[in-house]
Write a protein that binds this DNA or RNA. Structure first.
Lengths: 177, 177
DNA sequence: CCTGACCTGCTGCAAAATGTCGCAGCCTGA
DNA sequence: TCAGGCTGCGACATTTTGCAGCAGGTCAGG
């Protein structure tokens, strides 16, 4: 079988290494880029079929890289993989052409499944429980932050909360559950 | 100006009515459907330009309705609007062709903004203030509390917050801001 | 009538989150 | 180069929580 080239874009070396090993063992040819800036040239040269892309990285965000990646490699499948997930960025990512959006931690099987999932299946189960207040708050913050292009000060003002507080909230993980 | 037809698909009559009034006041021609089943014939006859679609409804889910709606009206813009949001369904919805995905509670401005976002509308009258986190939280609490017939304990459980905390919050004002 | 299962209000305390100030470094447009 | 806006962060006084309990009330079944 012809090799399948897999590009991992993530600034967490530990995560990247583990994933890369796991993929290599499954027969993929893998490459790792540790930032959006680094990823672009690698993508041009490596010409990957599949990509996992972290959103929150040092420097440029993955959301900016995504369209450029697809411009270069229109056929490659990109799955977003992030620890700071939110509906707002998920919507953005899918609109920009990602084939799926996963929350870390995600194991290799999940990632591959997400990449291979062809068309949307409307079967999705809908959560029976309403969102927790914390979750709702997180989603709202992400959404407004997004609208403000990541400007924390402006977001805090609109949200009627102190910049310091927003800052602290953002450093934490999104609400699990 | 030619009328813009707006279809609201939601099984919460209170919500639908409020939204419909608000939209009518802004010059839209509105119709309401209370279930996915009911929405289809209405859509065929009404031929809407814009749609808000609730995911979790009695009977069929909105996610199943979405593709059929777009089949009938390929040009209409659908925004998903639900209180039971999740990243998984958000991804699905966007893949299936929704232009956006919002978490309830969302006000009329948000909904319209979400619908227009896609249009490459460079204008983007950005400014309407988004809801403050506190207000959002308050609205959400009220809604869940309502669904639970005022049962504080049950509500607290669903909301993932301590009963005592909910209790204290409820004693305070309805959020000044 | 008693009992168990829940709800509700309320008190106290310790832990965690927030509101405030301030400072220094960075950019950016004037 | 300067003014002004953003960002990260430290420190500290306040508030807001999470938790554990207690007493009373309601309701359904035994």
């Amino acid at each position: 079988m012809p090799e399948t080239r897999f590009l991992i874009v993530d600034d967490d070396p530990v995560f990247s290494r583990v994933l890369a090993r796991s993929l290599t063992r499954r027969g993929y040819s893998t490459r790792v880029a540790e930032s959006a800036e680094e990823a672009l040239p690698v993508a041009i040269e490596f010409n990957p079929h599949l990509v996992t892309l972290d959103l929150k990285m040092e420097g440029e965000t993955g959301l900016l890289l995504l369209p450029r990646l697809l411009e270069i490699q229109p056929d490659c499948k990109v799955v977003i993989l992030t620890g700071y997930s939110s509906i707002a960025t998920a919507v953005e990512a899918i609109k920009l052409g990602a084939v799926n959006y996963l929350c870390k931690p995600a194991d290799t099987d999940e990632i591959l499944a997400a990449l291979e999932q062809e068309e949307g299946n409307p079967e999705q189960a809908i959560a029976e429980k309403p969102m927790s207040v914390n979750r709702l708050t997180w989603e709202h913050i992400q959404k407004i932050l997004n609208e403000n292009d990541g400007n924390i000060s402006a977001t805090a003002r609109q949200l009627g909360m102190h910049r310091r507080t927003l800052q602290r909230k953002l450093q934490k993980r999104p609400v699990r559950e």
